[in-house]
Amino acid sequence: MILGAGLDPWAWRLAELARTDVWKVDHPASQQDKRARLAEAAAVPRETDEGDRRGGGLPVLARAVRFTPVDFAVDDLGTALEAARHGPSAPTTWRWEGVVPYLTLDEVRATVAALAARTAPGSALVLKYQAPSANAAVGRLLTRVLDGSVNAGEPWRSLWRPRQMAALLAEHGLRVVADEDLLDLARTLGGPTRARASLRSGRGAVAESR
Rank of each mutant, 00 (worst) to 15 (best):
F72A: 09
R203C: 06
E47N: 05
L58R: 11
A152Y: 12
L38C: 13
L81W: 01
A167P: 05
G191D: 10
L182T: 08
L115Q: 08
P121E: 01
A136E: 13
W156N: 00
G6W: 01
W12Q: 03
T104K: 12
L168I: 13
G78W: 09
R203V: 04
D184F: 00
G4I: 08
L17T: 05
T119D: 03
D106R: 14
L199Q: 15
P88E: 07
V44Q: 05
Q31H: 02
A195D: 15
R35S: 03
Y129L: 06
L115I: 08
P192W: 07
A62E: 10
A134Q: 12
A83F: 01
L3K: 06
A64S: 15
V74H: 07
L58K: 04
V74L: 04
V22W: 12
A197C: 09
W23C: 01
A124G: 08
L127P: 00
W160G: 10
L183R: 08
S158F: 05
A197E: 14
L183Y: 14
G55K: 04
H86Y: 14
A110C: 02
W94G: 09
A167T: 12
G78K: 04
Q164M: 09
P88R: 15
L169N: 04
G57K: 13
S209P: 00
R210I: 04
A5V: 02
L115T: 06
R118H: 09
L189P: 03
R203S: 11
L168V: 13
G87Q: 07
L61S: 03
Y102F: 15
L115A: 06
V206C: 03
G202A: 15
R187E: 09
Q32M: 03
W94M: 02
T79Y: 00
L17I: 11
R35C: 08
A39D: 14
R63E: 05
R118D: 04
R37D: 03
R66Q: 09
A84L: 12
G153N: 11
R35T: 06
V108K: 07
L7R: 11
S201I: 12
V145C: 01
D26I: 04
V99W: 04
L17H: 10
G202D: 06
A15D: 15
V70C: 00
G148T: 09
R53C: 03
G56D: 09
A80E: 00
T92P: 00
L182M: 15
G190Y: 01
A84I: 04
G98V: 09
A36P: 02
A43C: 13
A80N: 02
L142R: 14
E208I: 15
G139T: 13
L3F: 10
V206M: 07
D71G: 01
D21V: 13
S201V: 10
N151Q: 09
A15K: 14
A197W: 14
N135R: 15
G139E: 14
L146W: 13
A64D: 15
L81K: 02
L183G: 10
